[in-house]
């Protein structure tokens, strides 16, 4: 996920990303940002923060816990907002979406 300094919500998105770094895929032991699971953040709704994301595999056994982690992390930094997760399978996740750091952690 790319961040632009021109983005109207740059500050909020930086805080959100920093929080989402703490959410780790329990099977791969890599955080979801470095895995490239997070596709987008939306702050347009004043009462909510919406994360558009995917999972490394559809119906991942740990999917529910990852989504709970995302909501927990965002609720911690934006207590006044409702944390929502929009789960999508398109585009499907693949390893090229991982960051250099994520690849290094998986010895790729």
């Amino acid at each position: 996920m790319q961040l632009s300094i021109d983005d109207r919500w740059f500050r909020e998105k930086t805080i959100a990303l920093s929080a989402l770094y703490q959410v780790v895929d329990p099977e791969l032991c890599v955080n979801i940002i470095d895995l490239g699971l997070v596709y987008g953040l939306d702050f347009d709704d004043a009462s909510a923060v919406t994360v558009t994301m995917t999972l490394s595999t559809p119906h991942c056994p740990m999917g529910e816990s990852i989504i709970t982690g995302v909501k927990n992390a965002l609720s911690g930094v934006f207590p006044e907002k409702i944390a929502e997760v929009q789960l999508v399978w398109d585009p499907a996740w693949n390893y090229t979406m991982m960051t250099e750091e994520g690849r290094a952690q998986l010895n790729l």
């Binding site: 989402l20 703490q22 959410v23 529910e64 816990s65 990852i66 709970t68 992390a73």
Partner: peptide, 9 residues
């Protein structure tokens, strides 16, 4: 730990 994920390490 599911309920703690994302809150604490």
């Amino acid at each position: 730990y599911k309920h703690l994920s994302g809150k604490i390490k």
